[in-house]
């Protein structure tokens, strides 16, 4: 191995590591706020990327029907619950977000022909389609069992994952897609070429991380999420709605997931089930951070990315083995250094 190869591998590792970092942040966020180990995180990566690819191929992506359908079910459930409790004032708001918004998006997708749009507009439309699915899934799958044990939440999470993967196959087919790059530029830096898309991935990841940092540190919603993560009951007593906190964390997780997918779709081929493995690597990183620390998770993600890149050079047949084996020493070290608290069942 010479310097040039090491630099290329490093560039590759950092690009993948940046994506894993984003996903690990989303996983930590969802887990601390709702105690859900969010396995479907990866599906948002695939849905975001394939929805954009669908626009670029001039097709109507199946996620549109998913949004309309899920929205209708959420509206039905919420209206029934509201009617029972008698809080009729809330009904217009429910209908606006779960029926009118998906219908408006559908009208844009079907009538405006996004195939001819500039890329940033296509990206925004893809996000507008996929991101609302996050809070809707929270409403349907997790809100009714918000107080259940971590294990029950995990099992429901697996079920949601399987359902979404199945829907992904139905919507997008078994074959993968690529999207056009944000930038075709490429710079010669010493002996290696730096691709524009790589810089986009790194830049967007850093931007999102800073934005999340500001959101949690400065905004009232961010502080509410942090309060819920630290003490659920205490936050509730202070007037913070745990339902709102759950929906908001799922919204952010869906946004991060879908945007990560859109970032990497020009670099690699995305399949309906690609998201799971990417999400799993993000999960390894999140575990390194003890599912609690954001900076440790982000650092862990970069380690995973670089380890993956260099092990694919040295021993490609054992790449996944090496990456996932990393979790064992981390768990051993964690269990030795931190005292274990038994969760109340």
């Amino acid at each position: 191995m010479n310097m040039q190869i090491a630099l290329l591998l490093g560039q590759d590792g950092l690009t993948n590591g940046a994506i894993y970092a984003l996903l690990s942040l989303a996983l930590v966020l969802v887990f601390t706020v709702t105690r859900v180990i969010f396995i479907p995180q990866g599906e948002f990566v695939a849905f975001g990327a394939l929805t954009l690819a669908g626009f670029q191929a001039g097709k109507t992506p199946g996620t549109l029907w998913l949004l309309l359908g899920t929205g209708a079910v959420v509206a039905l459930v919420d209206v029934v619950v509201t009617l029972r409790s008698g809080a009729l004032r809330r009904i217009p708001r429910i209908l606006l977000w779960n029926l009118a918004y998906p219908a408006a998006t559908a009208a844009v997708v079907l009538l405006a022909k996004p195939v001819a749009w500039p890329l940033p507009a296509q990206v925004l439309l893809a996000l507008a389609l996929v991101v609302p699915l996050g809070p809707m899934i929270y409403r349907l799958a997790f809100q009714p069992i918000a107080e259940a044990s971590v294990l029950v939440l995990l099992i429901v999470s697996v079920a949601v994952h399987l359902a979404l993967v199945g829907l992904g196959l139905l919507f997008f087919g078994a074959e993968g897609s690529r999207t056009t790059a944000f930038s075709d530029a490429s710079w010669q830096l010493g002996s290696i070429a730096v691709r524009g898309q790589t810089l986009w991935v790194l830049g967007a990841s850093i931007f999102l991380i800073v934005a999340l940092y500001l959101f949690f540190g400065r905004s009232i919603y961010g502080k509410a999420l942090r309060a819920t993560a630290i003490n659920r009951t205490g936050a509730r007593l202070m007037g913070i709605s745990t339902v709102m906190a759950g929906k908001l964390s799922f919204l952010l997780a869906a946004l991060i997931g879908a945007f990560s997918g859109i970032l990497i779709a020009p670099i690699t081929t995305i399949y309906y089930d690609t998201g799971f493995l990417i999400g799993l690597k993000g999960f390894v990183a999140a575990i390194i951070g003890g599912l609690a620390s954001y900076p440790a998770a982000a650092a862990g993600a970069l380690v995973v990315g670089l380890l993956e890149s260099f092990s694919s050079f040295w021993a490609s047949a054992f790449k996944e083995v090496i990456v996932f084996t990393l979790i064992i020493p981390v768990l051993v070290w964690r269990s030795l250094t931190s005292h274990h608290v038994e969760e109340d069942e």
Partner: peptide, 20 residues
Amino acid sequence: SERFNRTDTSVTGQVLKIIS
């Protein structure tokens, strides 16, 4: 002789080794 996975997002490592 190299290996890669169906779901890999990058094969840069293997490719560099092949080229060298």
